[in-house]
Simulated scan of single mutants.
Amino acid sequence: MSTPDALPVRTTPSAVDPGLDPDWIRRTVETALDEDLGPAPGRDVTTQATIPPSATGTADLVARAAGTVAGLVVVAETLRQTAARLGLPTPDVTFHTQDGDAVVPGQVLARLTGRTQVLLVAERTVLNLASRASGVATATAAFTRELAGTGAQVLDTRKTTPGLRALDKYAVRAGGGTNKRMGLYDVAMVKDNHVVAAGSIAAAITAVRTAFPDVLVQVEADTTAQALEALDAGADFLLLDNMPTDVLADTVAAVRDRQGDDGVPAHVELEATGNLTVERAREVAFTGVDYLSVGALTHSAPILDLALDLR
Results as ranks from 00 to 15, higher is better:
P22L: 11
D250Y: 01
T160S: 11
L164M: 15
S300I: 10
R10A: 13
L240M: 01
V121W: 01
R258F: 06
L292Y: 06
V219T: 02
E220A: 02
G199Q: 06
H96A: 08
G42M: 07
A253C: 03
E271D: 09
T82W: 05
T11W: 08
H194T: 05
L33N: 09
A15E: 15
N242T: 05
V190G: 07
D290V: 04
R280M: 08
R43K: 05
H96V: 03
D44E: 11
R258A: 12
D186W: 08
L129S: 06
A266N: 02
N193A: 05
V74N: 11
N179M: 09
R256P: 08
P162L: 09
M1A: 13
A142N: 07
V278F: 03
V29D: 12
V108K: 03
T47L: 02
R64D: 15
T68I: 09
R181P: 13
A84C: 07
Q226I: 01
V255T: 03
R256W: 04
V104Q: 09
P39G: 09
A198Y: 02
G114W: 01
P52S: 02
V217D: 08
L276V: 15
V136H: 11
T82A: 08
L79K: 03
G67P: 08
V255E: 06
S134C: 11
G57L: 06
D156R: 04
D5H: 00
D156W: 04
L112H: 00
L88M: 01
E30D: 15
Q218R: 02
S54D: 10
E269N: 00
F237D: 05
T28H: 14
G38Y: 00
R280G: 13
T178Q: 14
M189P: 05
A40C: 03
L109Q: 09
E220C: 00
